[in-house]
Design a protein around this nucleic acid. Structure first.
Length: 510
RNA sequence: GGUCCCUUCGUCUAACGGUUAGGACACAAGAUUUUCAUUCUUGAAAUAGGGGUUCGAUUCCCCUAGGGACUACCA
C-alpha cells in the first residue's frame, strides 16, 4: 500500500547529542514513511541560538546514518520545501505571526522578565501558579490591555515585545484524535497564552513547528509524548491560520531501567549502558558519553531493540530486519504506556545478530581487535575457524578476545583456583607422560585421533579422565574455560601443545 | 499544586467480553558435557485496589491509588 501524500519529519534540536529516545522517534517516523511509500524529512529546529551546541547537528546526522535511516529531504539533500534549518527560515515566521495579529488570534506583549517574575511571585504568595491567560492578561502590559495609541507608541519606541497566542476567552473543549491514544480532550480555559514569537526576532517552537509542518506539507506529526500537552495549542494554531492540520501520533516515552522518570542523558554511564547511539564528547565540559556503536552494538540490533520498545508485531517474532519492520509497522500496535529500557535485552539482541553473522564476517570484524592486542602474522582461515568455535558464547565482537586469547598467546599465568582444584594427586606425575606421548605421536594431528591416543594413555595409567582433561586444559588455556579441548589441541598444533604442557609442568607448583 | 496521559509476571509484551492469562529477557533447577559457556527441558513469576455493566470481565464504565509528561521569550 503506498500513499505518496504521506510526509513525515524528524525535527530535532541541535542542543546536544541525540539520545536513544530521539532515535526511536526518528525510527518510527521512518518506518511509517517507508511503509506507506511516503517521504521522510529531516528538519533542524534551531530557533534558540543560546542553546546551540557545535557539532550536535553533525552528530544527529551521523547517528541516523549509522542506524540506516535515510532521509529523502533535509539539510543535506535539500528538497522542494527548503531550507530545512529553521534559523534559515526567519522571514516566514514573522509573516505568519503578523497574520495572527491581524486576525486577532495573537497580540503583542511588552511585559519584561521582571514583570513576569513579579506576577509569578504574587500568584505564588497566594498559593497559586501564575498563568498568562484570558483571566490575567488584562492586568499585564499587552496590546489587549493597553490603549491603541500606547501600543503604537511602544511598538514605535523599539521596546522589546513578544507575540502571544490569544486563547479563546470562552471555554471550549479541544478534541483531537491521536493515532496512538485515541481521543484526547483539552479545555481552552486551562490553557495559557503561549509566546509564539520571541523578542529576539525568532519564533518559538510552537509557531515554527506549525508553520513549517504546514509549509512542508507534513501529513503526520509523530513525536514523543512530552509534546502531548502542546497538541491543543497546535490544533488551535492550525485553525487560526485556516490550515488543514496533520494527524498526530504521540509516542510513549522510554523510561529508566530502575528508579523514576524518563531516560536521561546521565543515566547511561551511571547505570552502565549507553544512552547515545554514538559516543559524544561534550565540547563545553569535555565530558565523554558512551555510545552504542563504540560499545560494540550492531546498528541492526540497536534498531531492532528500539523498535520493540513500545511497539510489537502482534506475533512472537522478535528479530526483525529493517525491511521486515517496515512491512510490519503500524500505530495500531504502538503502546500507550512508557517502556522501561532493559539493557540486558539490548545485549541479547546483539548476541542474536552476532551469531547470525558468518564466521568469515566476524573474523573480519575481530581482526582489528587482535591487532590492537599486538597479535600479528594472522592467518585468516585460522581466525575464521576459531571465531566459529566460540561465537555462541559472546554478545559482542570485542568479547571474542576473552574467549580466544589462548589461541594467539601462551597463557601468562594459571588460574590459581583451578590449579588448586585440579593439579594435584597423580596429575603432576602423569602430565610428563602425556607430554612425552604427544611428542612421540606421529599420526594425523586431528582432534579425534589425538583424543583416542590420550584416552588410551589415561586408561593404561588408570587415571581419571575428567581430572586429566581439566589439567590438560589448564596447561593449554590457563584456566577452566573454552571450547572442546581436542579441537584446541588440533588448532594449536603439536609443537605448541607440547611446549605448553612442558611449561605448565615446570611452572605449576601445587 | 494544576492540566493531560498511562497501569498484565522484576522488565518488554500477547490475549474479537468466554484461554489452564501466552511469549521473550533476566532468574532458578535439571539434562548434556573434558571445563566454562552454548543447547535442551522444567520451574517460579502478573491482570494495582474498590465499585458497577454483563450469563461471563485482563478486556467496557466510574472512583481510589500509583506512575509519567507538561506547566520558560527551551525545544
Amino acid at each position: 500500500m503506498t500513499d505518496s501524500t504521506v510526509r513525515v519529519r524528524f525535527a530535532p534540536s541541535p542542543t546536544g547529542p541525540l539520545h536513544m529516545g530521539g532515535v526511536r522517534t526518528a525510527l518510527f517516523n521512518y518506518l511509517f514513511a517507508r511503509r506507506h511509500g511516503g517521504t521522510f524529512i529531516l528538519r533542524i529546529e534551531d530557533t534558540d541560538q543560546s542553546r546551540y551546541v557545535p557539532g550536535a547537528e553533525n552528530y544527529i546526522i551521523d547517528s541516523l546514518k549509522w542506524c540506516g535511516l535515510q532521509f529523502d529531504e533535509g539539510i543535506e539533500q535539500g528538497g522542494p520545501y527548503g531550507p530545512y534549518r529553521q534559523s534559515e527560515r526567519r522571514e516566514y515566521y514573522r509573516q505568519y505571526a503578523d497574520q495572527l495579529i491581524n486576525s486577532g488570534d495573537a497580540y503583542f506583549a511588552f511585559d519584561t522578565p521582571e514583570d513576569l517574575n513579579e506576577a509569578r511571585g504574587k500568584a505564588e504568595a497566594e498559593g497559586k501558579a501564575f498563568s498568562y491567560d484570558a483571566g490575567t492578561r488584562g492586568s499585564m502590559k499587552n496590546s489587549l490591555s493597553l490603549p491603541v495609541q500606547e501600543v503604537a507608541r511602544l511598538l514605535g519606541s523599539g521596546k522589546p515585545y513578544v507575540i502571544r497566542f490569544r486563547m479563546p476567552e470562552i471555554d471550549e473543549a479541544v478534541e483531537e484524535d491521536d493515532l496512538i491514544r485515541g481521543k484526547v480532550t483539552f479545555h481552552t480555559a486551562e490553557l495559557d497564552d503561549k509566546v509564539l514569537f520571541k523578542s529576539d526576532g525568532m519564533p518559538t517552537y510552537h509557531l515554527a513547528n506549525v508553520v513549517d509542518d504546514h509549509l512542508m506539507h507534513i501529513s503526520h506529526v509523530i513525536r514523543g509524548e512530552e509534546w502531548l500537552p502542546s497538541m491543543p495549542l497546535h490544533v488551535l494554531l492550525y485553525r487560526a491560520f485556516g490550515w488543514d492540520k496533520p494527524r498526530f501520533a504521540h509516542l510513549p516515552l522510554i523510561l529508566k531501567p530502575q528508579g523514576k522518570g524518563k531516560l536521561s542523558k546521565r543515566d547511561g554511564d551511571k547505570m552502565g549502558f549507553p544512552v547515545f547511539p554514538l559516543q559524544w564528547k561534550d565540547p563545553a565540559s569535555n565530558e565523554t558519553f558512551s555510545g552504542y556503536r563504540e560499545d560494540g552494538y550492531f546498528p541492526e540490533s540497536f534498531i531492532n531493540m528500539l523498535a520493540l520498545l513500545g511497539w510489537n508485531p502482534g506475533t512472537e517474532q522478535e528479530l526483525f530486519s529493517m525491511e521486515e519492520l517496515v512491512q510490519a509497522f503500524g500505530f495500531e500496535r504502538v503502546n500507550k504506556s512508557g517502556a522501561r529500557f532493559d539493557p540486558e535485552k539490548a545485549k541479547w539482541f546483539n548476541h542474536q545478530y552476532l551469531i547470525q553473522k558468518s564466521d568469515e564476517e566476524l573474523a573480519g570484524l575481530f581482526m582489528p581487535v587482535l591487532e590492537s592486542k599486538g597479535i600479528t602474522h594472522l592467518d585468516l582461515p585460522r581466525v575464521v575457524r576459531i571465531v566459529g568455535l566460540v561465537k555462541e558464547r559472546v554478545s559482542f565482537v570485542k568479547e571474542l578476545w576473552e574467549q580466544t586469547h589462548f589461541f594467539f598467546q601462551v597463557p601468562e599465568n594459571y588460574d590459581p583456583k583451578v590449579v588448586k582444584k585440579r593439579w594435584k594427586g597423580e596429575i603432576p606425575a602423569f602430565m610428563p607422560k602425556a607430554s612425552a606421548l604427544l611428542q612421540a605421536y606421529d599420526g594425523p594431528w586431528e582432534a579425534e585421533a589425538i583424543k583416542t591416543e590420550v584416552s588410551d594413555l589415561i586408561e593404561k595409567e588408570a587415571q581419571n579422565f575428567g581430572g586429566v582433561m581439566n589439567s590438560f586444559r589448564l596447561a593449554l588455556v590457563g584456566g577452566s574455560f573454552g571450547p572442546d579441548l581436542f579441537t584446541i589441541v588440533e588448532i594449536l598444533g603439536k609443537e605448541e601443545v607440547v611446549t605448553r604442557l612442558n611449561k605448565a609442568i615446570k611452572e605449576i607448583v601445587s
